[in-house]
């Protein structure tokens, strides 16, 4: 499964990066490919490219802060999650992403 993620948090100094790391780690552990863009106080890093969006199966976005350039994901299945939940329960969120994809395939 190809997962894309974008993380952001109110102060943009710690949780953005913790969430990105946690998500990447959890996804890789379950055998998925993943790329996580961080929108923190350093600016936007690891920017997701348009062709990567085309290939992606699912998009995971944190919902604590408005995600910049969100419109590029239009038409893709999106999961919105709290940044704190990503940090603490990234495994569960990746499992949920798998579920969403499975349901979509069944339909």
């Amino acid at each position: 499964m190809k997962i894309l993620g974008v993380t952001a948090c109110p102060s943009g100094v710690a949780h953005t990066y913790m969430a990105a790391e946690a998500l990447a780690k959890a996804a890789k552990k379950r055998g998925h490919t993943i790329k996580v863009e961080t929108q923190g106080s350093i600016g936007i890093e690891n920017t997701i490219r348009a062709e990567e969006v085309v290939d992606a199966d699912i998009i995971i976005l944190t919902k604590d802060m408005a995600i910049k350039n969100k419109e590029r994901f239009a038409g893709k299945p999106i999961i919105n999650v709290g940044v704190g939940d990503v940090v603490r329960k990234a495994d569960i969120i990746v499992a949920k992403a798998e579920e969403v994809i499975a349901q979509k395939v069944q339909k």
């Binding site: 100094v13 710690a14 990066y17 913790m18 990105a20 790391e21 946690a22 780690k25 923190g40 350093i42």
Partner: peptide
């Protein structure tokens, strides 16, 4: 430049997930 301490914080935050 404010970037330096933010970068250190970012690296540290990532490491703390481990």
């Amino acid at each position: 430049a404010s970037n330096e301490h933010l970068r250190i914080l970012a690296l540290l935050s990532r490491a703390l997930i481990n």
